[in-house]
Design a binder for these strands. Structure first.
Lengths: 257, 257
DNA sequence: CGTTCATTTGAACATGCTCAATTCCTGTGG
DNA sequence: CCACAGGAATTGAGCATGTTCAAATGAACG
């Protein structure tokens, strides 16, 4: 606890929980002390599976991966997180964390003790909204990812992965067409549910097609529209297809034929 | 709105939001009116993708599936829900639903308007805890499912699916070894990310092995332990394997060799 | 430099998908 | 009550995607 140093910075302006922080605290009923920040380094764990849950965190800079352990000791990466993202939401269920969060690079987080969070929720509607919104978004992201996992082939999944990263960086004010991957190929493969070799082949192929340029962990997107096209790759379209309008609308469909 | 009939029943005792209801309301600061209930039938939609979000729901009886649409119009089932489960949590993100919820059989739900929920959260710690807990659980369930989707082969995924259902039914006071599937084979296949034919073959195989008995949509689990064993099926164990202790512990591993 | 880890590449193989045909249900109308 | 139609489920056979295994190359760090 004491290792967290109280401070306030410009990074906080983008924070999803900024309503809790001191500037805002003046013009609302919220009466919460300033958050405390801490720096972590690559491979450090913010928390591990099983640890007691007593705070949520907001990532201020850097990046993190979250992972679960299967019964057989396999690691499954469940997500990558970037500045502004809420961390530790898994802990509400049991009062203990079910995931492990490891930093991919030097990063800083903002810690909000659960007791403070709860008090803030009681007092501030905007805090309630922000938290529910954040959790709902995490839930929706997971479900979208599931859709991808089941409906897409390797090249679609990979294109989707790159485009998602591009979007995330753009929404954080960074370049959408040139960025560094903070995670290894093994991490990407694990996250996407494919072999490392397949990830490598996807990179090679996209580069051969002049859609992206790869330099170690640096990615340049050369041709956005063709990368988008990868998502609609013909092959996987018919998989598990369920017609939307199962009854009474066949005439429309066949009419447009 | 008016179609929801206010009432209170014994089903509410198992409800995760029961703290909001009238009995409890007396002995706390919560001042919320009784919830309203409504009956739906098979194939009815509770809400659809894009509809305005103005309430969450608790399933009181029956079952539901949630689904997303891919860009190409494919449906991807993201979950099945049973009595006591919270529905509509996807709506907090954008104030509109991103999923579609369809009933698999005649069911009833309890509706909690968002405005009421918010007021209750302001007043009651237990409401805050229950909601955060419910959302956290949904998040964790999603992540566990993802782990399964990526690390398991078809027979493991299917065994896991059956065992999960068994657990859910048991925790709701129903039989864990004999139950009816309220969803079609197509739905199961879509959910698990495999072809209908594969689902069918899994059922056939498990029956041939005398692990389960299948009668249309009725499932009897004959041999629980062998069904559990399916989860540890040798083949898929090495897939995407990441050793847990990457550095400094190799001696232990090789010593046990 | 030499060791170790990360990444790439190639070739064979296996799991699960596709396609096609059949059987089994359910509900409907004669 | 039976015949029939449409959907749901099952089964078989060939094939494709992506995995596994093996080896080589490249980068990083002491």
């Amino acid at each position: 606890m004491s290792q967290y140093v109280a401070q306030q910075s410009s990074l906080c302006q983008k924070c999803s929980m900024s309503a809790m922080c001191i500037e805002k605290a003046c013009d609302s009923k919220v009466n919460v002390k300033v958050r405390s920040h801490k720096i972590f380094h690559k491979s450090d764990a913010l928390f591990r599976d099983g640890e007691r849950f007593d705070a949520i965190y907001i990532l201020r800079s850097g990046s993190v991966k979250s992972s679960l352990l299967s019964g057989t000791g396999q690691e499954q990466i469940t997500g990558f997180y970037f500045p502004g993202d809420l961390l530790g939401l898994d802990g509400f269920e049991k009062g203990a964390h079910s995931q492990t969060l490891k930093f991919l690079e030097t990063s800083s987080v903002c810690r909000i003790a659960f007791s403070e969070l709860d008090a803030a929720m009681a007092n501030s509607q905007s805090i309630r909204y922000n938290l529910l919104q954040g959790m709902s978004q995490a839930l929706n992201d997971d479900d979208k990812f599931l859709l991808n996992a089941h409906c897409m082939n390797a090249s679609q999944k990979f294109a989707s992965f790159i485009l998602n990263l591009s979007n995330k960086f753009e929404s954080r004010g960074l370049s959408s067409h040139n960025f560094d991957l903070s995670m290894s190929r093994v991490d990407i493969a694990n996250y996407l549910g494919m072999a490392v070799e397949t990830v490598s082949r996807q990179l090679t192929q996209l580069q051969k097609d002049h859609i992206i340029e790869v330099n170690k962990r640096n990615i340049s997107i050369v041709d956005f529209s063709r990368l988008q096209d990868c998502l609609n790759d013909e092959k996987a379209m018919s998989k598990h297809f369920i017609p939307l309008m199962s009854k009474g609308f066949t005439s429309q469909v066949s009419a447009s034929h």
